[in-house]
Amino acid sequence: MSYFPSLAVFFQIIINGTFLGTMYGVAAIGLSLIFGCMQVLFIAQGTMMILAAYSVFWLVYFMSIDPLISILIIIPVFLVLGWIMYKGMFQRVSQAGPSSTLLLAFGLMVFMESMMLFIWSPNIRSVKTSYSTSAFQIGDITISVSRLIVTVVAGIATCLVYLFLKKTMTGKAIRGVSEDRVTGMLLGINPNRVSAITFAIGIAMAGVAGVATCLIYPFDPYFGFLFSLKALIAIAFGGLGSVGGALLGGIILGILESLSSYTISPGWADAIAYAAFILVLIFRPQGLLGKAADKV
């Protein structure tokens, strides 16, 4: 192990970190939207990802649908799921304050984890496709095809959400409610409707991130919480409530993890990520990008 990687290795690390980070980033966007709009820390986000991953696993296993096509099934299903979750649960509970919604999210997480454990067993699963192992070379750098696909999909999803927030009336309403709920209500925005839409989008983003995960990593039901934590760190890096910031925060986190596992040791990568997280919280609570970031 060398402390100073050669240039090619350095680029390889950066690229791997970016691929890893986009997945955190997509999960973080959903989390960030939900937090921005209704101050709910939805810690079941990672578990929703794993639920999507298992759904893809079944789609591949029983109907042999390619994971990339299954995104088209996962997104609408998760949108509806998110809508139902908000209307059925979070709308009621959100009046009682943040600790109750946190508790509700936690209860959902435990419930879904154990349901998945019951249905799919604790064995580690993975999704195999024809392109799972293929890769190509640019110079000295190896790029895995499935990771590249995942990154592109993540990028498209982010762009779509960004455009939705920027260009549509509903998107404007979401941004308005995130900025000031009461003023939004005075201007005739129905905060419950907006929150439900935001929640649905957030869950759908978890679905996309889940499809991405299952293409690259083996997974088990307990994986979800780890992803929720990583998504939280990504948000802190990027600054709460911004779409681009969340994705960038995820990528920074991914690169940081890859770099520290190469130069120090893989065992310490998590601790370094958390330490960086706390330092960012203390010294730049508005996120690394600060006010330069587009506040969405």
């Binding site: 939280l232 998590d270 997280f277 919280l281 203390i282």
Partner: peptide
Amino acid sequence: VVLLSKLRDDYFSLGTLGIGEILRVAALN
């Protein structure tokens, strides 16, 4: 001293969560 002076609300929760996780990784290594 470090977290309570600087962080409020959810940020404090996240910071303390980080402390626990750092300790866990430290114990592992």
